[in-house]
Write a protein that binds this DNA or RNA. Structure first.
Lengths: 252, 252
DNA sequence: CGCCGGTTTGACCCGCGTCAAGTTGGGTGG
DNA sequence: CCACCCAACTTGACGCGGGTCAAACCGGCG
């Protein structure tokens, strides 16, 4: 288990890019440090200059910023396998904060190490670059949602996105997944208030679209939720098709 | 003027990264094709598979998507010097459209050429990667705005951002710049309606913050506009300081 | 058993959307 | 040089989605 972080990393890059054995070999030799972080703690804070980036091995994390009046906007959620601050490789000073949503296990790699790996193995560099581009594609999707979709649609979209991303790492078999996010956190990501998120979720529950028991989320009617959220997983750009569009439509 | 595109490209990369003479040399040798595009025409459409990317030499362009009900969300505006679809280098299928806002002059470079340049000159690869990361940083900024700021703040923020980016390429000396965007386009970028944008702009004019004569935009009170829009140019990550924070405050 | 973070509910309000009707000004053709 | 057109901009009246405020409620934990 000493190479846990490296293996998570390789699995992820295999999902989006085309690595060969030498690339994987080189990745396996990356020096990493593993750390556990408590829920709610900032891993990196806005304005900080960083010298390393990290792979999320276990748990949930998010990135966020505050407005002048103290409102929080969550910019991204991260699930195991993600490399949440890869951008720091080139943009050393953080323009937002990065925190553990739940207790998380994180693998750290120095920028130096990543950088020399990129020089030695252009394939890996390409894969990492692509990874940051997918990050950007998700941002674009959120911009469209925040700008032009209703609260209900946005909520549906986020639930679909998380289901899909969790599924891609084997954490959401048949539309059931652990979603350890408070409604407050969902609201701050969706540009809504807790009250509204609560009402939307109840509405979904009432309509038989999903069930939620504590942090266990069950999507009962995937195709309808997809329609409401205008969700098309293409923007996540998985090379391997995580085949979710093809799911037998349950609903009316 | 045969190397117009290349020189625009070099000037841009010099603005954000640290190139040496060999890098510039190699960039100058990039084979490019120049094309003029009429206002309103799609340069690349959603779903299209592309084999080249482009540098905006002159004019304004934007990227956008439509929702199911046909509402448009503009994801980004681009000014001369930008490389609007650099992400296509790794994500070949467009997940959004890219259009000319005004008549524009554009230089095209094949992905192949860019890719071999990246292999040969890691410095350039790094600069281009950084360029895509700045694109992402701008997205994050817009997410925070769309999610948590008022229409008024968002509008102010966008005007500041455009002023800053135009200034960085010498197109907005002393807070005056050509802004050939209709209020409809502004609205679609800001997640608002034309009516609201119109009222916000009039309010700004009334408060003496700006003047607008046709497409000529004059920011009369930079510091106040910056405050209203919660604008901090750091996220644009210019290496060279385009020194705009330091502008003598005009206003109350 | 009582605290506490998270959730739920209700009443009320406001920013912004919607609809609809002008107005303005540059471009075009007669 | 005028008449007309059309896209962009304005203005007003009205309504709704979602925010705000405030008060429970619920379940896990010390």
């Amino acid at each position: 288990m000493a190479d846990e972080a490296q293996r998570v990393l390789i699995r992820r890059l295999d999902l989006v890019a085309n690595l060969n054995d030498d690339d994987r070999e080189a990745l396996l030799r990356l020096p990493t440090t593993i750390k556990e972080v408590e829920a709610g703690v900032d891993i990196v804070s806005e304005g900080e200059r960083v010298k390393q980036c990290c792979v999320l091995i276990d748990g949930f994390t998010h990135r966020y910023r505050h407005t002048f009046e103290g409102k929080r906007q969550i910019i991204a959620f991260h699930v195991p396998g993600d490399i949440p601050d890869l951008h720091s490789l080139h943009i050393n000073v953080m323009d937002h904060s990065f925190a553990a949503t739940t207790r998380s296990k994180i693998g750290f790699v120095s920028h130096e190490a990543v950088w020399s790996l990129c020089i030695a193995r252009p394939n890996v560099a390409a894969a990492l670059w692509l990874e940051t581009l997918i990050d950007g594609a998700i941002f674009r999707e959120w911009i469209v949602g925040l700008g032009r979709l209703s609260g209900k649609s946005r909520t549906a979209h986020l639930l679909c996105e998380l289901a899909m991303r969790l599924r891609s790492v084997g954490m959401a078999p048949d539309h059931v997944y652990r979603l350890p996010l408070t409604q407050h956190e969902l609201a701050d990501a969706l540009g809504l208030t807790v009250v509204t998120v609560n009402r939307v979720l109840q509405e979904f529950k009432l309509e038989g679209l999903l069930d939620r028991d504590r942090s266990r989320m069950t999507i009962k009617n995937w195709s309808t939720l997809v329609r409401i959220g205008e969700f098309d997983p293409d923007y996540l750009h998985f090379r391997v098709d995580v085949d979710m569009k093809a799911t037998p439509p349950t609903g009316h």
